[in-house]
Design a protein around this nucleic acid. Structure first.
Lengths: 250, 250
DNA sequence: CCCCTGTCAATTGTCAGACAAGTTATCTGG
DNA sequence: CCAGATAACTTGTCTGACAATTGACAGGGG
């Protein structure tokens, strides 16, 4: 795991905790007092607060104060952070397990070669498996990785259900972020069998690309979820426009 | 619209522009130089940069520099910001229109009264409509609002397709954020007819609650999207844990 | 020639203190 | 009782400084 600077990291955790245990709508201590309380400078505190403000969990009003906003009383699975299903299940106290793991080499087709930014006819590692919650299939996950990232043996030996967790464990490649596209689809024949549902039953789909800090694509994954078992949500802020970039050719 | 302080607002815009026109992986100027360039202090610049870092668009490395990351070359519709479909379509240069608007008073049922935090048997305003892109139905939107927020006449007179845009136009209520839960569902009978599709065809569903800055729930909406027409995505950061709050009773 | 090491410049991370700007409650004079 | 001034408190911004980390480069030893 990439360890940030101690101050920044522990400050983030402390603030997170403080916000979590403060009721929605309540006011925080003033910045100078809070900074002293937490043992950091006001500048550092403000930067950390900005993080939570960006996420919509804090509201600052000049001349008045800073207020906590819990967009809902209960937090299920926030999409802003990238975590494996296993980690999420851990936090929620759910029992999940892995069934039917398949690892294989594949030659990339045209579409996947463009997605992974690889030359055609390159070999990749394809990992697929079913996730069970209380012995009921609830998700079907597929990962595609360049072979130089990780070897087949390594997966077979070290795999606990999550490619992400495995990459994090190997401090090897510094991971930055994941771009996730959200859609819905009717179950295909194969997936319907794997999840023990009917063909064309609706599924929630996440198509994700995992980026290293150097901008390289490490993993292309497709996650198919049975609706109702996981509650994915996101906090969207009003009027905080980011300039859209439609740079066609790079 | 709530106008932030000038410095903060214009700095945010300038940075957004700068990032948009910088290629992925490239390095920004150093903080001191950039601060001078933009005419602000380094502290303010750092706070603004933190916003974009939180969104996964910037990567800062101590001793090295700050780098731009575009998780993908093309930006479609980022879910981090809450915008109406009309606004999104505008930005993308799409032609969308509204068909079949229905406005009606309703008595809340038990479920909705809990969602909106209203007493039972209270009246609410229910607004539903179909969104067309190039004359093809692509989305079905439902909104439920407390009647003291907005009147039926106002909707009929001023409505352009978006409840959100209408609330923004009336400077009346300061909006903060929206909590959006994402799922998939098979089309019901009514929605299938409205969208001109078959029953049980898969749909992407957003169930959203809109919060005012005072924490009041302003709007409960359900948005049903035909897959493939809109590309919703989100940037997820690795290892940036927010303390989950599972505060059952409030 | 290669490899190791110390030095040094550049960059981000953090800090302290100050003042500006906005909000709210209180006091004061009419 | 009311209106306006005022004071206290908050967040927003600025300035300057130092610490921590990184990467490159020169120099020396093998």
């Amino acid at each position: 795991m990439i360890r940030d600077n101690d101050v920044s990291r522990s400050l983030h955790e402390q603030l997170s905790l403080l916000i979590a245990e403060t009721e929605s709508g309540e006011q925080l201590l003033s910045e100078p007092k809070l900074a002293i309380n937490l043992g950091v400078s006001r500048a550092s505190l403000r930067e950390a607060m900005r993080t939570f403000e960006t996420r919509g969990l804090l509201q600052r009003k000049q001349g008045v104060g800073t207020f906590v906003i819990h967009p809902t009383g209960v937090f299920d699975t926030s999409l802003e952070n990238l975590n494996s299903l296993e980690t999420i299940a851990d936090q929620l106290g759910l029992e999940v397990s892995m069934g039917d793991l398949q690892v294989a080499h594949r030659i990339v087709d045209l579409e996947m070669s463009e997605i992974l930014e690889l030359p055609e006819n390159e070999e990749i590692l394809h990992v697929s498996r079913v996730i069970l919650a209380e012995n009921r299939p609830v998700a079907y996950l597929e990962d595609n990785l360049p072979i130089d990232i990780i070897s087949e043996d390594e997966v077979r030996k070290d795999f606990t259900g999550s490619v992400l967790d495995m990459l994090i464990r190997r401090d090897d490649i510094p991971l930055a972020s994941s771009k996730c596209e959200i859609s819905a689809i009717g179950a295909t024949h194969d997936i319907a069998i794997a999840l023990e549902i009917q063909r064309h039953d609706p599924l929630l789909v996440f198509s994700s690309l995992l980026f290293s800090t150097r901008g390289r694509i490490i993993d292309s994954s497709f996650s198919y979820f049975l609706p109702g078992y996981f509650h994915f949500h996101i906090v969207r802020r009003v009027g905080d426009q980011i300039t859209p970039m439609q740079i066609g050719g790079k």
